[in-house]
């Protein structure tokens, strides 16, 4: 990156370290922290949406929809999330390509040939002509969908609990005012449930943060990938030979996650006190007393 780093073999000590830490590979490592944060910022709202749908489906009066909602919300209790992560992206990828093959390809050529999964060039996703970053983005997108499905199920659990926790009396009052079930949902149930949902959602965010290293397993080049790649001992085939330094890289990642969770906790404390204002809960009561 810097001109003085042109020949790292001649460098020593701090100068070497500075050049080493600013090599192109390290820049990719630093950028991958962005990937993790990007994934978090996209996954969280999408998962919340999925969870919302799941929770509403589980409370639905239409039986098949309710069954679907129940299965969806309870699946994450029985099966470890990592299994979904190993499974869902491949299934999605092949599912998308299969659908596109139905549209774009010659139907006389079978898609499964022996152990091969073959679609014609036009149906490939992304097209093999597209640049590398499109392929990477596609990989990340698949990961985001997988994360959203799994964490959506967790969120559905939380939201379902929160909907059940909204005091009956509030809903009954709304009914007494002549609101229809839909209006009760929209005007009372959903606005009121957040204070009950927040502790669970905060917790879920923490779980999500701590699940991001699993991106590595999905083949996304995330911080774990680069930490392993950079930390491993390097021979003189590389510009910066060094012994096995993986532990330092992993410790750095550990600190990153501790900071993330610590910061999130601070933020959630603030939101919690905001949402408790005027609520018929212990926290709300305490705030009311403090104010008067």
């Amino acid at each position: 990156m810097f001109a003085s780093c042109a020949d790292p073999k001649t460098l020593e000590g701090l100068a070497w370290l500075m050049c080493y830490l600013s090599s192109g590979k390290h820049v990719l490592f630093y950028l991958s922290f962005g990937t993790v944060i990007l994934l978090l910022l996209i996954t969280a709202p999408v998962a919340l949406l999925f969870g919302f749908g799941g929770a509403l489906a589980a409370r639905s009066r239409i039986a098949p929809l309710r069954w679907f909602g129940k299965v969806y919300t309870s699946m994450v209790r029985g099966v470890p999330d990592i299994i979904f992560f190993l499974f869902v992206p491949i299934a999605l990828d092949q599912g998308f390509e299969w659908l596109r093959a139905k549209v774009f390809c010659d139907p006389s050529i079978p898609i499964r040939q022996g152990n091969e999964f073959l679609v014609c060039a036009a149906a490939k996703l992304p097209l093999s002509t597209s640049p590398a970053w499109v392929h990477q983005l596609y990989g990340i997108a698949l990961a985001i969908i997988a994360f959203s499905i799994v964490f959506g199920a967790f969120a559905a659990n939380v939201l379902r609990g929160a909907m059940d926790a909204v005091p009956r009396a509030q809903l009954e009052t709304a009914e007494a005012y002549g609101m229809s079930p839909r209006q009760v949902s929209r005007r009372i149930l959903i606005p009121q449930m957040w204070t009950y949902a927040l502790p669970g959602l905060g917790n879920l965010w923490m779980i999500l943060v701590k699940a991001t290293p699993l991106l590595f397993i999905l083949g996304v080049e995330d911080i774990v990938y680069w930490a392993r790649e950079l930390g491993g001992s390097k021979t003189s085939a590389y510009a910066y030979p060094h012994p096995d330094w993986r532990i330092y890289y992993f410790l750095a990642i550990l600190v990153f996650y501790l900071l993330m969770t610590w910061g999130s906790e601070r933020i959630f404390d603030r939101i919690r006190s905001r949402l408790s204002r005027g609520q018929a809960t212990a926290a709300g009561e305490a705030m009311r007393k403090a104010a008067t």
Binding site: P213, F216, V224, I247, F250, L251, Y257, L258, T261
Partner: peptide, 21 residues
């Protein structure tokens, strides 16, 4: 704080790298 605040996955990596030392 340390064990709840960091991913188990990373804890495994660090522990292994530390134990082999």
């Amino acid at each position: 704080f340390v064990f709840r605040g960091s991913p188990l996955f990373i804890q495994f990596f660090v522990a292994y790298e530390a134990l082999v030392q």
